[in-house]
Design a protein around this nucleic acid. Structure first.
Length: 846
RNA sequence: GCCGAGGUGGCCCAACUGGCAGAGGCGGUGCCCUUAAAAGGCAUGCAGGUGUGGGUUCGAAUCCCACCCUCGGCACCA
């Protein structure tokens, strides 16, 4: 980088008149010109050849990524926090010798733009880009050192052409398919949703209670990767809570599928159970209400139709409140007992999980227990509880039980299996089931396929053409992107794209040429856009390929990903799936997209989340327009460790501003002394200060490595105080200058503007951000003498000074010579504990 | 209900593999500067033993057990 002149004209205008007011720290004056220069000169861009090719080891390549923002408006405090953490990380990495790939873009498709169009008549594209422009300007004003050469927008046809390509790749691999299923319908947003987007029975965005409706929709076959998605978690460095959330979401369970014949011999029903050992306790049988055997057998039954209608109207919340059941007019035979047991249709059994039918064991399953109590069904004890040591406990008495028994025990009333502990019984029964041909061992997952189609219009059109004779035909690659029309009417009820007068008809079947073929009118979920954007950053303008495969091999996985925990099972799971699927198609070498993940905490206010309606909203603008970007950044980082929440009511930008002002003043005073030749601090003070510098380098470096920016800043404050102490009488000299140079270098990732300005005012070469990370002179930190604390029976009784590395004998002698200690050594000394250079503890008896 | 994180001075927040509890900040108080206020400067721990009860240990904020509270996440998945 070229030699940087003083970032403002401040240096040139610094007053030589000693009587004049000293120049005050004015971040609002010094920051904007530097920010503009970084933007103009693309200071933090990586050379294109480096990014488009596999990087060399010697470059110490590092892909640091922060979740790209959704442009719903200007940046909020959460954005400022995560970008600040990420930027401190990136700037520190650069100073420690890494070539950092640090891109930014916008997750620019999505419903808010469409809602703005519907409610205010805005053009979704114009609305989106206006918000992006506002965010970009704030991001640059705050000094975040992104690479502006690789900006991407997911709503740009140059981007979504490749989102559509990705869809077709998956379609070609059989990983994208269309089928009818019971799906989540959001009546407010007027679209279907993925399971991951439904929280507590409500749409994640709209908050509306979702309805379960049968619809033909597009899915990605993420369940093909369920096992790998689960096992892969062990190899990545993510917070446990995110891994656990994904494990729970994938929900692997081991059990068996067993066939139960109907008593009339007409049908065979497959059930899935994780507790085949409890089969002797199966006293009734339950089908999902929509189970095909039931709907076939009950066809034309008005009473049952009424039940079905009732059940499908119930929300999840209602379903959990009580279990609705319908006694079916046939029975099912338990293959192990030969008994015929009553059959029900009930909404607590889900068609979408397992086989849609269960054997009900009320003694050992809480839901079956509840249902049995409600419908007065037999609860048969087939397990006798045992204590931890295997000791038999009292037998269960169904008459008095209030809940199912889930603990350890041995089988009873279970034929040949009596007396076995249940894990053994489970293994034996599965083996016997297989031998007899009644079923097989089976692994099941809670994870469902990813529903990706949306009935919305501000998203990438699904690149499929429907033809009466050829079926679902992919749009030929040369015809990508399938572009959105720019004259959509957002006032219509339902999907604007579907109701566009010409768009879907203006196409012929690519296969047979049939003019009656139509385009698929659904768009892809925004989570599809964001499931691969980290790959596109390598070559965002490439028209030949989605990403350079070679380069992707070198840069992926992203070494450090930072972002919010709200994506634990959405974006973060989808991206993992996409990378694995693309890997299997030969497009990327990595197994995982993100090697390490850092989830920042929330920015809250007085213990509550901020919102306009609560009137406790703080926005970045009001902070940086008062105290500057550096103060905003330092406040965020100092407030807490990155993963902890920040309560804005507890933090003080004024305190940080005061500290930065102090650094400003100390540096300007030093510059004045160097100009005027003022006195130097004495040798003792210089030695003390040099030690403080070495200590700060060691401490701050460790903290930066561990990303504990709050304690790193605390150590820099300590160093500032040391400079203050040393210069109290107005002296300066080389040690003070060195301390300030080091302070600025160590502070650069946190406060990039102040440090850049002062670095150049001190007359240093280049940018402070291009300096190598300082190395401490650790010899300064080695003491000849150390203070040893002396305890008697663990209580502090004295302090003695001994030479460093003194052995126990020497330390003990010195300690006994100390009056304060000797006073407590009346009894018998039974033991002496010596921790070299730290502590001596006498254990005294009596 | 299950899983996870966490309870340390008035407040936020530190304390490496157990080893002097307090780094750093906020707030408070006093003084200086000022016509005054704000801003700034200087000084000062202001008093508490780490949520509760046990245990291990020479020694526990740190490890173990039980419990209480707070905050997140997941909850009919057979």
């Amino acid at each position: 980088m070229s030699n940087v002149p003083a970032a403002t004209d401040g240096a040139a205008t610094a007053p030589a008149d000693p009587a004049a007011e000293p120049e005050r720290y004015d971040p609002l004056a010094i920051e904007p010109p530097i920010a503009e220069r970084w933007a103009r000169e693309r200071t933090y861009s990586l050379p294109e050849e480096l990014r488009r090719n596999a990087p060399a080891e010697a470059d110490a390549p590092y892909y640091a990524l922060t979740m790209f923002p959704y442009p719903s408006g200007d940046l909020h405090m959460g954005h400022a926090e995560i970008f600040t953490i990420h930027d401190a990380l990136v700037r520190h990495l650069r100073m420690t010798g890494h070539r950092v790939l640090n891109p930014i873009g916008w997750d620019a498709f999505g419903l808010p733009a469409e809602n703005a169009a519907r409610n205010r008549g805005a053009d979704p594209k114009a609305w989106t880009y206006a918000n992006i422009e506002e965010q970009r300007s704030t991001i640059q004003r705050l000094g975040y050192s992104f690479d502006w050469d690789t900006v991407l927008y997911t709503c740009d046809p140059a981007y979504y052409a490749w989102t559509q390509w990705l869809f077709l790749e998956l379609f070609g691999a059989g990983l994208a398919y269309r089928r009818e299923a019971l799906v989540n319908w959001d009546p407010v947003d007027q679209t279907v949703l993925a399971n991951e987007q439904v929280v507590d029975g409500r749409g994640e965005r709209s908050g509306a209670i979702v309805e379960r409706v049968p619809r033909t929709q597009w899915f990605f076959r993420i369940t093909d990767y369920a096992d790998e998605l689960l096992d892969g978690l062990d190899a990545i460095d993510w917070p446990d809570r995110v891994k656990n959330a994904q494990r729970a979401w994938i929900g692997r369970s081991e059990g068996a599928e067993i066939t139960f014949p109907t008593a009339d011999g007409q049908d065979e029903v497959l059930v899935y159970t994780t507790r085949p050992d409890t089969i002797f306790g199966a006293t009734y049988f339950v089908f999902a209400p929509e189970h095909p055997i039931v709907t076939r057998r009950m066809a034309g039954d008005a009473d049952y139709d009424a039940f079905l209608a009732e059940v499908s109207r119930r929300s999840d919340v209602e379903r959990q409140a009580g279990k609705t059941g319908y006694r079916l007019p046939f029975e099912v035979t338990n293959p192990f007992t030969g008994e015929d047991i009553p059959a029900f249709a009930a909404d607590y059994v889900l068609m979408e999980y397992g086989t849609g039918a269960i054997m009900a064991v009320p003694i050992a399953d809480q839901r079956d227990f509840d249902f049995a109590r409600q419908h007065d069904l037999e609860i048969r004890p087939i397990i006798r509880p045992t204590a931890e040591d295997g000791q038999l406990l009292d037998e269960l008495d169904p008459a008095t039980m209030t809940e199912a028994y889930l603990g350890d025990g041995v089988m009873v009333n279970s034929g040949d299996y009596d007396g076995l502990a249940w894990p053994e019984a489970k293994a034996r029964i599965i083996a016997d089931v297989e031998t007899k041909g009644w079923g097989t061992a089976k692994v099941n997952y809670r994870l469902r396929d990813w529903l990706v189609s949306r009935q919305r219009s501000w998203g990438p059109p699904i690149p499929i053409i429907h033809c009466a004779s050829c079926g679902e035909v992919p749009v030929p690659l040369e015809d990508l992107p399938v572009e959105l029309p720019d004259d959509l009417d957002f006032q219509v009820q339902g999907s604007p794209l579907d109701q566009h007068p010409t768009w879907k008809y203006d196409v012929a079947c690519p296969s047979c040429g049939d003019e009656d073929a139509t385009r698929d009118v659904d768009t892809l979920d925004t989570f599809v856009d964001s499931s691969w954007y980290f790959l596109r950053f390598l070559s965002p303008t490439d028209t030949e390929q989605a990403w350079p495969v070679e380069a992707a091999g070198g840069w992926l996985p992203v070494e450090q990903y930072t972002g919010g925990v709200e994506h634990a099972v959405l974006h973060l799971l989808y991206s993992r799936f996409v990378v694995k699927a693309m890997r299997d198609r030969g497009h990327v070498a990595a197994d995982e997209p993100f090697q390490a993940l850092l989830n920042q905490g929330q920015v809250i206010m007085d213990g509550a989340s901020m919102s306009k309606s609560k009137g406790n909203l703080v926005v970045p603008g009001e902070v940086y327009e008062t105290y500057g970007a550096d103060a905003l950044r330092a406040t965020m980082l100092f407030a807490s460790a990155p993963e902890d929440d920040i309560d804005w009511a507890d933090v003080s930008p004024t305190g940080i501003h005061k500290w930065l002002s102090r650094i400003w003043r100390l540096t300007l005073e030093q510059i004045a002394r160097e100009t005027d030749g003022g006195p130097a601090i004495d040798a003792d003070a210089a030695a003390t200060l040099d030690r403080a510098v070495a200590g700060a380098i060691v401490g701050a470096s460790e903290d930066y490595e561990a990303r504990k920016y709050n304690t790193a800043i605390a150590k820099l404050m300590t160093l500032t105080n040391a400079v203050l102490d040393a210069t109290r009488q107005g002296q300066g000299g080389p040690s003070v200058r060195s301390a300030l140079d080091h302070l600025l270098t160590l502070l650069a990732p946190v406060a990039p503007f102040l440090t850049e300005e002062l670095w150049s005012r001190l007359g240093n070469e280049g940018s402070v951000h291009d300096q190598p990370w300082p190395q401490a002179d650790t010899a300064l930190l080695v003491d000849d003498e150390v203070e040893l604390i002396v305890q008697v029976n663990g209580k502090l009784r004295g302090r003695i000074t001994v030479s460093a590395g003194a052995d126990q004998a020497a330390a003990e002698a010195a300690a006994r010579a100390d009056d304060a200690v000797a006073r407590h050594l009346d009894g018998d000394v039974v033991k002496v504990v010596h921790v070299p250079d730290k502590l001596l503890n006498f254990v005294v008896k009596g």
